[in-house]
Computed example of a mutant assay.
Amino acid sequence: MIRRSVFLSVVSVALLSISSFADAAETTTRFDPRGTEFGNLVIASVTDLDFMQPLISAFQQSNPGVAVTYIEDTSNNLDASVSSACSDRVFYADLVISSSIAQQVRLVNGGCARVIGSPVLSSLPDWAQWRGELIGLTYEPAVMVYNKAAFEEDGPPRSRFDLIDLMRQSGKLNGRIATYDIEDSGVGYLFAFQDSTEASTWGRLIEGFGRNSVATFCCSSEVIDRVADGRAFIGYNVLGSYALSRAENDPRIGVILPSDYTLVLARAGYIPREARDATAARAFLELALSPQGRAILDGETRLLTPLSGPAALARLSDDDELTLRPIPLSPALLVSLDRAKRVRFLSQWRKSVTPPSP
Rank of each mutant, 00 (worst) to 15 (best):
L205D: 04
N212P: 01
S259E: 07
I206C: 03
Y189R: 12
C219S: 15
T201M: 05
V227S: 04
A283K: 14
A281K: 12
E198Y: 14
G203N: 14
V238A: 02
N237Y: 02
R246S: 10
G188F: 00
L190W: 04
S196G: 11
G230K: 04
V227A: 04
R267I: 10
T201S: 12
L265T: 08
G210E: 08
S245N: 10
I253T: 08
L244K: 01
A199C: 14
S259N: 02
G240V: 01
A228Q: 09
R252P: 00
A280R: 12
Q194D: 09
G208P: 03
V264L: 11
I253W: 10
S200M: 15
R252L: 06
L263P: 03
V223S: 04
Y270F: 15
E286N: 09
F284Q: 11
T279I: 14
L265N: 13
L239I: 02
Y242M: 05
A199I: 15
I234E: 06
E207K: 13
D195R: 13
S259L: 06
A192Q: 07
Q194V: 13
L285Q: 05
Y189P: 03
E286V: 02
I234T: 03
N237L: 11
A192R: 01
F217N: 05
G188N: 06
V227K: 04
R246M: 03
D229N: 14
A266V: 05
L257K: 04
I206S: 02
L257Q: 12
S196R: 14
R226E: 05
R282C: 06
P251V: 09
S221D: 12
G240K: 00
S200N: 15
G230Y: 04
R204M: 09
V227W: 03
I224N: 00
